[in-house]
């Protein structure tokens, strides 16, 4: 499999900035403009969050954005409808991130087929375990050109990490600390040791660091130990307030990286 995700990691080895947002937040129809603004501001990779009623791996910020998005009327069907022409204007890799239950209700095969039609490159489903993925999902993901992105944490054993590396095809999502999203806003020495330990294993997949990346300093630190970093809660938080969307997006991204 070789899609936009692989191409990105082949062409850019460092300072990759990936941004997460919840589809349908703050307003239902913000999804497409949000993607376009993020691209305009030089983001390398976008994770489009599919809101779920019971996001157990998420902290208060993404719980809130998910709730508002659902109240706004967001659903998988609505999201696919919003994204149907996205590839006419956007070339960077796009990933859908969400929980397994809405995907199961849509139907896994139909869901993957639709992702392919739209031009989605990968999926992050935190509550889809590796063994279930391999037995029930891998074939249909591959047939539709979709990478499944696995998470690892400081508590992940070396043995399991190597297994995850073997199953992964796009990149590995290195969770900086064992926590829900947005729970921490800094990265400690201990976490840097864990990044170094993982780097010493000689894994075949590149890594992006996420959880606790919230500003220029934490982004720069993460980039020292990986190909780049993922920002979620801090960005979603920055979408609060009444400024126009393009201002909120450019203001936040410019606070993370100086546009070159």
């Amino acid at each position: 499999m070789n899609n936009r995700i692989n191409k990105l990691f082949q062409e850019k080895k460092e300072q990759i900035l990936s941004v997460y947002f919840t589809a349908g937040y703050p307003n239902l129809e913000d999804t497409v403009p949000m993607i376009q603004e993020l691209v305009k501001n030089g983001v390398d990779l976008i994770e489009i969050g599919m809101p779920f009623s019971d996001p157990v791996a998420d902290g208060p910020v993404i719980q809130h954005s998910s709730l508002i998005a659902l109240q706004n009327g967001m659903s998988i069907r609505k999201l696919f409808d919003q994204l149907k022409d996205i590839r006419q204007t956007v070339d960077i890799p796009l990933i859908l991130m969400g929980y397994i239950n809405p995907v199961l209700q849509y139907g896994v095969a139909a869901f993957c087929q639709k992702c392919k039609e739209i031009g989605i490159d990968g999926l992050i489903i935190p509550d889809l375990p590796m063994d279930v993925f391999e037995e029930e999902f891998k074939k249909v993901f591959e047939a539709n050109g979709l990478h499944n992105i696995f998470l690892i944490t400081p508590q992940t054993s070396e043995e399991r990490l190597r297994k995850i590396d073997a199953v992964s095809t796009g990149f590995i999502y290195m969770v900086s600390s064992n926590s829900t999203t947005g729970a921490k806003t800094s990265v400690s020495e201990l976490q840097n040791e864990y990044f170094e330990r993982v780097n010493s294993f000689g894994l075949k997949n590149p890594r992006l660091i996420g959880f606790g990346i919230s500003n220029a300093e934490t982004f720069a630190n993460a980039c020292q130990y990986s190909s780049g970093a993922i920002i979620g809660s801090a960005f979603v938080k920055a979408l609060e307030g009444s400024d126009p969307l393009h201002q909120k997006v450019s203001g936040f991204i410019n606070s993370i990286v100086t546009v070159s």
């Binding site: 157990v56 935190p126 509550d127 375990p129 998470l151 508590q155 926590s179 829900t180």
Partner: peptide
């Protein structure tokens, strides 16, 4: 049944 858990709960 099964264990549909995020990686953070695996250990």
């Amino acid at each position: 049944g099964g264990a549909y858990i995020p990686e953070m709960m695996v250990p």
